[in-house]
């Protein structure tokens, strides 16, 4: 193989997903009316905010080498719990904290069952996810929760600072938080070491189980936070409100794993993955494509992105 082709390939592996984001941006700006006006670009960021936040949490459990199938249902449960409390005039701050505590408990339970009892993450989180869904129905008796909620709480999901919606600001903070955590802190480095080679990490004196549990907690906590934001955005909640996040969250993180070209989960990658999905959703809606076409396109893009990086890296022998 000549050098040029090799260079081209490694370039593709490294920046393939970033490149597709760019290409998508250009195509949509050229062919979709109103796509590139600033208001729409802000809309895109607002629309993708919740998905990004929940995927960032999920990414943390991928980083420690585990899996979480429960996060979407934990988001649903959190959403109805916080809504019910607020409609019943609870103190907003304690309602929010209590809901986050629910997320924390789910993450802790997932983590303990995986590390201490030794059940595989897929089974544990499938089961706890079903439990969370059941609890959400039990709590609401199966109906949606509405009623008046404190204004301050609603600003969380609806307000804005100048032209920037608060959700976008929250999203940015979450992404930066996780990015700094994984790249700049001891905790983050230990989580990555745990995910990549648990034996080596253990022998280096790292409490592998602790960091696995932490990864699971981040995933559930992120989900609970998104449940709260969802309620705040909608002003109401349904017991299946978070269900849609499962597939999209997976899609986002999987796309994210192609961003650095290494098959390696990262908060930055996940953000790019979310951006790709956000752009697609928005652009295709503006084009008037029906929702099923959007789903088919999203699925195809995931396969394409993963196929390109994996086949290219195979050719490079990595």
């Amino acid at each position: 193989m000549d050098k040029g082709a090799l260079k081209f390939r490694s370039f593709f592996i490294k920046y393939g997903t970033l490149l597709s984001v760019l290409i998508l941006l250009i195509i949509f700006s050229l062919f979709v009316p109103n796509f590139s006006n600033p208001q729409n670009l802000i809309n895109i960021l607002r629309q993708m905010a919740l998905l990004t936040i929940i995927s960032e949490g999920f990414t943390m459990c991928l980083i420690v080498g585990e899996l979480d199938l429960s996060f979407a249902n934990v988001a649903s449960l959190s959403s109805v719990v916080v809504a019910t409390m607020l409609v019943n005039k609870a103190n907003p701050l304690s309602a929010v904290l209590l809901t986050l505590l629910i997320g924390f408990v789910f993450g802790l339970a997932n983590g303990l069952l995986i590390t201490k009892v030794g059940i595989s993450a897929m089974i544990v989180t499938l089961a706890t996810g079903i439990i969370a869904q059941g609890l959400a129905f039990m709590y609401t008796k199966g109906v949606s929760v509405y009623g008046s909620m404190p204004k301050g709480f609603l600003t969380l999901g609806r307000g804005s600072v100048g032209p920037i919606p608060s959700l976008v600001i929250i999203m940015a903070l979450v992404v930066v938080f996780f990015h700094v955590l994984t790249n700049r802190t001891k905790v983050g480095r230990y989580m990555e070491a745990t995910g990549q080679n648990p034996t080596a990490a253990y022998l280096a004196g790292i409490s592998v189980n602790l960091y696995k549990i932490l990864g699971m907690i981040f995933s559930s906590l992120g989900a609970a936070f998104v449940g709260i934001l969802l309620t705040s955005r909608l002003g109401s909640a349904t017991p299946t409100g978070g269900a849609g996040f499962l597939m999209d969250g997976f899609a986002t993180s999987l796309l994210g794993m192609t961003v650095l070209g290494l098959g390696r989960a990262s908060p930055f990658g996940t953000f790019i993955g979310a951006l790709l999905i956000g752009l697609l959703n928005n652009g295709m809606t503006l084009l008037g494509a029906p929702y099923y076409i959007q789903d088919i396109t999203k699925g195809s893009i995931i396969i394409l992105a993963v196929a390109i990086t994996s086949s290219q890296s195979r050719k490079l022998g990595k």
Binding site: R189, Q196, T199, A200, A204, G205, R264
Partner: peptide, 26 residues
């Protein structure tokens, strides 16, 4: 079995478990 973290570089592997940090930041 070589006990290394595959995607970490030599320096990161060297310090694994005893990283230098200030208030948790590397």
């Amino acid at each position: 079995e070589r006990e290394l973290i595959p995607y970490f570089n030599g320096i990161q592997n060297l310090f694994l478990g005893q990283e230098k940090s200030r208030i948790g930041f590397l």
